[in-house]
Design a protein around this nucleic acid. Structure first.
Length: 492
RNA sequence: GCCGCGUUCGUCUAGGGGUCCAGGACGCCGCCCUUUCACGGCGGUAGCACGGGUUCAAAUCCCGUACGCGGUACCA
């Protein structure tokens, strides 16, 4: 049987980075096994539906380099791939369960259920359930006379369909990642399968879809582990074989807890994939990083392309414990990938970034040189424009920290250097010569290299760090450099 | 509360009874390279949650405790 996996997010907002990793593991597993990667949109909660979320999911997957085999907009033999378009299917299956007496209609209002729970709580039951005991005193097709049930149905009274969860039964299953897992049905509510708005709940829709879409492996976050017995119960009720389950460890925030908008952004970690896109992160770096958050190939390797990851990925190497998101490691990956990308690869993106900042690029050689000069020093592609702005315009301000290196003798030294390079013709204004002139200057005044270097760098770029200075001076050109030195001498 | 899952350096992890006084990576620190900033190279720092078993031998197996996380909805 060929492998089919699915990524099944709900369109309730932008795609979360944890969701992206779940998608990634599904994708890697599919590719590794020559299987299919299906996207299914779980839009059964109309109140939480967010316009544009589905597109965001699709865009995010594409950006990260995951190709969908079947899904909305893409098509396939198992559609539709949006749950809101499969209502009839769920109805049919829910009714089937009622007929089989494995489920029943319930007419209780939310208020009535709350009341029941409150009452039981007061009488000492800490976690009251709508279960095999309490359902006997509620308004449902198990307690109401047959004709009243029919009348209510005909009248169009609101109802839900609930699963008849057995009273005391052990549900055991094998999880690919965790091994043996078992739950008792005691402690489970009679799950609502069909909501009063006609939509299925996650549990029903998920099971029906996974079965009808012929999903072989369910790879999802650990937050679903305790729902799995409900799903097993459903598979059993339908007489279907359950797919193989694999529950992934959660991605945690450095401050503790499941990575969420709240606890992540306060740590400087973007949570939505779109933030990584607009933040100019390298998709292959993020993918590499995410793959290693909860999985490792077992050797000492760290850097792998998507293709290599597809090759290496197996579920038995996924770890069980939650993994804390390490932003610095992500940045390390990002730097690595930038360095691995050639100047030619980088060029269009960097050009767009510079243009976006309103800088005019004189010619292609100029851009090439700028990128070459900054290539090894940049950890995110947008730093080309922050670190490299001075190639295009004179510094508008001088970095305060850098200014500490602007000492009493700095003006004199800079002045002295300026006098020397002013003598140079345009042709002579090149890196080697400029460096020689600096040597001459420091020798004359008997000071160390840094004594002149730093002030010069500050005068020209406004910063205390940056690319190799002499080629930068050459690129910017004599006239402009002299001008910047004069300005600095004036201001500082 | 109840149920479930987890726990190896600060973080991601390797390791699944002897080869482990625990290996790699990020971070941090130091040195070298570079008369600048980086890159790079080299080295250092730091860990088997705790307590009981089982065994000649336990990071590895079992039990318990602690801690963390998740779930407990007509949300997914």
């Amino acid at each position: 049987m060929s492998v089919r996996v699915r990524f099944a997010p709900s369109p309730t907002g932008f795609l979360h980075i944890g969701g992206l990793r779940t998608a990634l593991y599904n994708y890697l597993f599919a590719r590794h096994n020559d299987g299919k990667f299906v996207l299914r949109i779980e839009d059964t909660d109309q109140s939480r539906y967010v316009e544009g979320a589905e597109q965001d999911i699709i865009d995010s997957l594409e950006w990260a380099g995951m190709k969908i085999d079947e899904g909305p907009g893409k098509g396939g033999d198992h559609g539709p791939y949006r749950q809101s378009e499969r209502k009839d299917i769920y109805h049919k299956y829910a009714e089937q369960l009622v007929e089989q007496e494995q489920a029943y209609y319930a007419f209780d209002t939310v208020e009535e259920i709350d009341e029941m729970r409150e009452r039981l709580k007061k009488s000492g039951n800490p976690s009251p359930k709508y279960d095999s005991i309490t359902r006997q005193s509620m308004k449902n097709s198990l307690t109401l006379p047959q004709d009243e049930v029919e009348k209510r149905l005909e009248n169009g009274d609101e109802y839900v369909i609930r699963l008849k969860v057995p009273r005391k039964e052990s549900i055991r299953f094998e999880d690919e990642i965790r091994g043996h897992v078992s739950f008792e049905t005691e402690g489970l509510d009679d799950q609502v399968l069909l909501k009063s708005d006609g939509m299925p709940t996650y549990h029903l829709a998920n099971v029906v879809d996974d079965h009808t879409m012929e999903i072989t492996h369910v790879i999802r976050g650990e937050e679903w582990l305790s729902s799995t017995p409900k799903h097993i119960l459903l598979y059993n009720a339908f007489g279907w074989d359950a797919p193989i389950m694999a529950h992934l460890p959660l991605i945690m925030s450095p401050s503790g807890g499941k990575l969420s908008k709240r606890n992540a952004e306060s740590e400087g970690i973007p949570v939505n994939t779109k933030d990584y896109i607009s933040g100019n992160y390298e998709p292959d770096a993020l993918v590499n990083f995410l793959a290693y958050l909860g999985w490792s190939p077992g050797d000492d390797s760290e850097i792998h392309t998507m293709e290599e990851l597809c090759d290496l990925f197996t579920l038995d190497r996924v770890s069980k414990g939650g993994a804390v998101f390490n932003y610095k490691k992500l940045m390390w990956y990002n730097e690595n990938y930038i360095r691995e990308h050639s100047v030619e690869e980088l060029k269009p993106r960097v050009e767009a970034l510079f243009l976006g900042k309103g800088f005019e690029i004189p010619d292609d050689d100029f851009l090439t040189t700028v990128i070459e000069l900054l290539h090894e020093r940049v950890s995110k592609v947008d730093e080309f424009t922050s670190m490299g702005a001075f190639f295009f315009e004179a510094p508008t301000a001088y970095d305060e920290k850098a200014l500490k290196k602007w000492k009493d003798d700095s003006p004199m030294l800079v002045q002295s250097y300026k006098a020397r390079i002013e003598q140079l013709s345009e042709d002579e204004f090149e890196a080697v010569t400029l460096k020689d002139k600096l040597k001459e200057t420091i020798e004359e005044h008997d000071v160390g290299f840094g004594k002149l270097m730093m002030p010069l760098r500050i005068a020209v770029s406004g910063q205390g760090f940056g690319p190799d200075l002499f080629p930068a001076l050459e690129l910017i050109g004599k006239e402009e450099i002299i001008k910047r030195i004069d300005t600095a001498l004036n201001k500082l």
